[in-house]
Simulated scan of single mutants.
Amino acid sequence: MTRGTMPPYVVSLVLEAASAAGVAREELARLPGVSSLDQPGIRVPTMTLTRLWEVAAGAFTEAGGAPRVAGLWTPGRFHVWDYVIRSSPDLAEAFRLAARHLPAVTDPDSAFDVRLDSAGRLTVATRPVPTFGRVGALIGEFVLGLLLQQAGTALGRPVVPVAVAVAGEPPRSYRHLVEAYGTHEIQFGAPVSSITFSAADAAAPLPGADPALAVIVQDHAVHSVSTARLLLGWLDKVHAEVAECFPDGPPSLDRVARRMAMSPRTFQRRLHEEGTSWREEVEKVREAEATRLLRDTRLTIDVIAARVGYSDIRALRRAFHRWHGHAPADFRRRSPSG
């Protein structure tokens, strides 16, 4: 099973960027799984990346914004996924194939929507993983910077997008985004983050196009996902146990502690050592699952409230306003699959 997990490549890059931006080494070392990122053939919990962005968000903002993180990427850093792009015949097909093989680089719960308009312009829209939560918009800005770099590398020349849409609200100054994306054509408050390339760029042959190699690397992308070994952290096991409690109502600390073979006191002490609390971890699981159910299913909101352990729909509405700033119904309407 690959949902909720990802290869270590993106985590390693963001970890390097966080260290360069001045985040304390001991704070980064507390994140689950970071000491094992160099192990071959593994997948780490996606929540590791979420926590990393939460820890480093302020430092990234001061260092020039999320797109600057993408500047640490170099060709081959994301292993086979990079070569899926470079061996494709043109940019449009490169990003279609990249979308198909996204689990080779990130969580399969994320997605790229790749489309050509009637004028031949190519738009790649990103759908964030539900567990990204409040840092989802920031990660979206990073992904757009990465897509722009991938396009330039694949074409062998600088690329200027014709438009960029960002899911987050506009900052007081967005000069850093203009510099990173190379355009003033930036829309804020979009339902999803996206980047649009000109028709000429979309159709231009890629210098590294190689049909024989393309078949090999695509097969390897599938193989790398199917044979990967899952590396679970302690908190990820806690999250799984919390989710198991939802059908019976609000999760119980005593029950989860028991299932983790700990006394409630030891369990709470371990949570404190992880830099978190019972309430905070339950909130994270609820947010991720409620967001996923709203986006990916047609379940009614009262059913979703029950599915994530809330006693009534009003509790979910209050929580959703706290997480996203609007009601669950509004989120569903704005969702690309809504």
Results as ranks from 00 to 15, higher is better:
Thr2Ser: 15
Thr5Ile: 03
Thr5Trp: 13
Met6Val: 03
Pro7Met: 03
Pro7Val: 00
Tyr9Cys: 04
Tyr9Ala: 11
Val11Cys: 03
Ala17Asp: 05
Ala20Arg: 10
Ala24Trp: 04
Ala24Thr: 01
Glu26Arg: 14
Leu28Ser: 08
Leu31Gly: 07
Leu31His: 03
Ser35His: 10
Gln39Cys: 08
Gln39Glu: 13
Ile42Val: 09
Met47Gly: 09
Ala56Glu: 11
Thr61Ser: 13
Pro67Leu: 06
Val69Lys: 01
Val69Gln: 05
Gly71Glu: 15
Gly71Val: 15
Arg77Phe: 13
Asp82Arg: 09
Val84Phe: 11
Pro89Gln: 13
Leu91Phe: 11
Glu93Val: 15
Ala94Val: 12
Leu97Ser: 13
Leu97Met: 11
His101Arg: 07
Pro103Ala: 01
Thr106Ser: 12
Asp107Phe: 00
Asp107Ala: 00
Pro108Trp: 11
Ser110Phe: 08
Phe112Arg: 00
Ala119Met: 06
Leu122Cys: 06
Val124Lys: 00
Thr126Cys: 10
Thr126Asn: 09
Arg127Pro: 00
Pro128Trp: 13
Pro128Val: 15
Val129Pro: 02
Pro130Ala: 12
Pro130Leu: 12
Gly140Asp: 08
Leu144Cys: 05
Gly145Leu: 09
Leu146Glu: 07
Leu147His: 06
Gln149Thr: 12
Gln150Glu: 15
Ala154Leu: 10
Ala167Val: 05
Glu169Lys: 07
Glu169Phe: 02
Pro170Gly: 04
Arg172Asn: 08
Arg172Val: 11
His176Leu: 07
Val178Met: 10
Phe188Asp: 03
Ala190Gln: 13
Ala190Arg: 02
Pro191Lys: 04
Ile195Glu: 01
Phe197Lys: 01
Phe197Ser: 12
Ser198Trp: 02
Ala202Ser: 09
Leu206Ser: 03
Pro211Ile: 09
Ala212Met: 14
Ala214Leu: 09
Val215Pro: 06
Val215Ile: 11
Ile216Pro: 01
Ile216Glu: 14
Ile216Phe: 14
His220Met: 14
His220Phe: 12
Val222His: 13
Val222Trp: 11
His223Asp: 14
Ser224Gln: 15
Thr227Ser: 14
Thr227Asn: 10
Arg229Pro: 04
Leu230Trp: 10
Lys237Pro: 02
Lys237Ala: 13
Val242Thr: 11
Val242Asp: 13
Val242Cys: 07
Glu244His: 06
Cys245Ala: 15
Phe246Lys: 03
Pro247Ala: 04
Pro247Met: 05
Pro247Gln: 03
Asp248Val: 04
Gly249Tyr: 10
Pro250Trp: 02
Ser252Cys: 08
Ser252Arg: 04
Met260Pro: 04
Arg265Met: 10
Gln268His: 11
His272Asn: 04
Glu273Trp: 01
Gly275Val: 10
Lys284Pro: 00
Val285Gly: 05
Thr291Leu: 07
Arg292Ala: 14
Arg292Leu: 11
Leu294Trp: 07
Asp302His: 08
Asp302Asn: 12
Ile304Val: 14
Ile304Cys: 01
Ile304Asn: 00
Arg307Cys: 09
Tyr310Gly: 14
Asp312Asn: 15
Ala319Tyr: 01
Arg322Val: 04
Gly325Phe: 05
Arg332Gly: 09
Arg334Asp: 09
Pro336Ala: 06
Pro336Tyr: 05
